[in-house]
Design a protein around this nucleic acid. Sequence first.
DNA 1: GATACAGAATTGGTGAACCAGATGTGAATA
DNA 2: TATTCACATCTGGTTCACCAATTCTGTATC
Lengths: 249, 249
Amino acid sequence: MAERLYRDIGEHIKDEIRAQGLKPGAKLPTERVYADQYGVSRTVVREAFIMLEIEELIEVRKGSGSYLIKVPGDGRMIKSFAEDIGPFELLQARQVLESSIAACAAQVVTKHDIQLMQETLDLEGAELDSIEKSDAADREFHLLIARSTQNSLLLETCTQLWDLRERSPMWKILHSRIKDTSYRGQWLDDHREVLAHLRRRNAEGARQAMWQHLENVKVTLFALSNTEDPDFDGFLFTSLSPGQKPGQL
Amino acid sequence: MAERLYRDIGEHIKDEIRAQGLKPGAKLPTERVYADQYGVSRTVVREAFIMLEIEELIEVRKGSGSYLIKVPGDGRMIKSFAEDIGPFELLQARQVLESSIAACAAQVVTKHDIQLMQETLDLEGAELDSIEKSDAADREFHLLIARSTQNSLLLETCTQLWDLRERSPMWKILHSRIKDTSYRGQWLDDHREVLAHLRRRNAEGARQAMWQHLENVKVTLFALSNTEDPDFDGFLFTSLSPGQKPGQL
DNA sequence: GATACAGAATTGGTGAACCAGATGTGAATA
DNA sequence: TATTCACATCTGGTTCACCAATTCTGTATC
């Protein structure tokens, strides 16, 4: 039946909560009851409870019992976040958000930040042959910009968007096709232009440069995705709508 | 020390992983080693491992051991969720991000979206007396704008920022002071102006209106925070830096 | 050098026992 | 009758000992 018995039990408990129409605040059966019901040890039920607790679905109160915080969803939300997102939707979001972050950064960036960014771009240039290393430098450059705003939420947002990319199977496929092209060279030029505007503390210049950079990335990926597999289409263009040129001044 | 012993142990293990500079793929000490080290039973360590497993930080392989998937973050996201983030840092981030989202929305918003927003503002106006209800409408309005971009990541970002607010104890304190003032009236006017620009599909107008709205909120909160408690200062202005007027055109 | 196999190491899971906090009960009391 | 307080009971918290299933390791064998 399974690796990880506690996961099975946890999911069963979720189903049961849903099926019985329990409402937030309701008291759940005790660990011992579930143990009997599913014919497993209390330990396993405790582990399942821990799972639900970490997912913030229940609250466990010592000496009292466990209480429902919210009715567990079908888990489709998490799925959509992990898988369903197309590369273009992600790039669109990055375009909207990161261009604004760059504009913000331009106004508060320090010389030290600029220096770090310069070093990262130098590294990116030196390692253009290595997909892995130049990609890491790419990420680092974008995050450095967000970090330079000194606002941890902007940095966190940027980080999340980047992490999302790495969880997208579709992105990996497209990404793997880039290896032998010269696109990375253009992106490096884009980065340099963004940095130039940051150096001059030119907020709107930075905003536009970042926008254009991600526009270029989109165009590149579009070209790559068109060459083959018609299968892609449905996947790539999910919720692409915010088209045109938002942010254009 | 704590309710939930497994959480303490889990956090300690995270610290240790970070401190020892383990890299993804590395093999972790066995459950029994940790049990001895922390002077707890193996059961508790197993629970802590399950926590890390659910957080996708480690992979537990039966008969083999546990392996690091990725180095745990500083928990800044989680910490910030709980405590560290000052209301002004949050508002700063919203200002940067939501103004851009509004500009994006202006270009793709549909009549139906506009109608929903209008209804939400009507509701907000009608319920100005009820903090709870007008607050809910406030949130709904901002999320409707993000939703109208048709980009699930922009909506998700917006939602996260808003949720963050509700988990900030400091924000709640400030928020509780608003009740009997007329600030909500001004915010409603702000909202109406944003909507007017959206209706005209005026991207830069919407951007500026949203920026100004959140600027007004910042000013209000600043006034409220100044009236009493000097204690606040250290808390409120953590990482406020992106000062001046980024985004000013 | 490659293979097979025995034994060690490690996680998976169980059951019983006891602890500690929370709750309900019922008698004693005002 | 209403209140209080002690005590039994229910609940989760933790430990321990034990066995099963899987994987790893080193040795003997070919």
